[in-house]
Amino acid sequence: MNIEARARRTRLLGGAGAVLLLAGVLTVVIALRAQRSAPQPPASAASPVNVIPTGTTPPRPPAGPTATVPGPGQPNGPSSGSGGTRGLILPRSRPVRLQIASIGVDSTLRQIGLNSAGEIVTPPLDKDSHAYWLTVSPTPGELGPATIIGHVDSAAFGPGVFFKLGAMRQRAKILITRADGTVALFEVERVAEYKKNAFPTQQVYGNIDHAGLRLITCGGDFNSSISSYDSNIVVYAALVSVRSV
């Protein structure tokens, strides 16, 4: 290779390196901008309200034990049971659609489980962000805390399905369409933010005395050195009514 050719190749490689460096900087900038604009819940959002209707609980089929799954940085552990139940309890039926008008969510529900270490599998980062029902949790409407997770954002695609989850407040409505042709209406009890290294596993995933719902995403500060958020946002909700599709 002659000197002129080598020089030309060096210029091309240098230009390619500059482009790659610029792309990396843009990725970090996009991630930081997305994180700063994602709403975070105030302390007042964590104060619980009672949304479960009072009255006679309708008959329900026998329910099995509620699965307990680990939160970030937390070991698995046993759940504590309850002596009675409150509110409506529905039979098991796979959830297929999630709608939250107050934050503009309308997503088909995909399924996700646990990995070999017993931790929740991280959903894929796709351009069309979806919410995922955790298959080891109850189905929405069953006794226990049905769990749905989704991304807040990504450097590649921007805001995710739960980008505005931190903007939810007490008594907000959540609709879940189920495979049996019913639509379960949930209302928010509270919205809390937890550091990942202090995630309250039992409080989020443990057995409860009603048909509950947990919506979970990332929140808090974004650590660019590890490309991760330091907190989780958890929306607690309860079943208040049911109707046909």
Rank of each mutant, 00 (worst) to 15 (best):
I208L: 05
F157I: 06
A46W: 04
D180P: 07
V69D: 00
A117M: 07
Y205G: 02
T10L: 14
I112H: 12
T57H: 07
I176L: 09
A167C: 04
P61S: 04
G144F: 01
P145F: 02
T177V: 08
S102M: 07
A63T: 14
T122G: 05
A18Y: 06
F162P: 05
P91E: 09
P159G: 04
I233R: 01
R86K: 10
P58Y: 04
G212I: 06
M1Q: 13
G104Q: 14
D128F: 10
R171L: 01
G84M: 02
P53M: 00
G87Q: 09
G17L: 15
I148E: 13
G71R: 12
Y236A: 06
A43P: 00
V51N: 05
C218E: 10
H151I: 07
H151D: 13
G83M: 09
G144M: 00
N223K: 11
V161N: 07
V19R: 07
P200G: 01
S47Q: 13
S80L: 05
T139H: 11
G158W: 09
R94M: 11
V105E: 10
G166V: 06
T201G: 13
R97I: 12
S82D: 12
P61Q: 03
A146P: 11
P70T: 05
L215P: 00
L26E: 10
I30H: 12
T68P: 02
A156R: 15
A7I: 08
L90N: 04
V204S: 09
Q203E: 14
G83I: 06
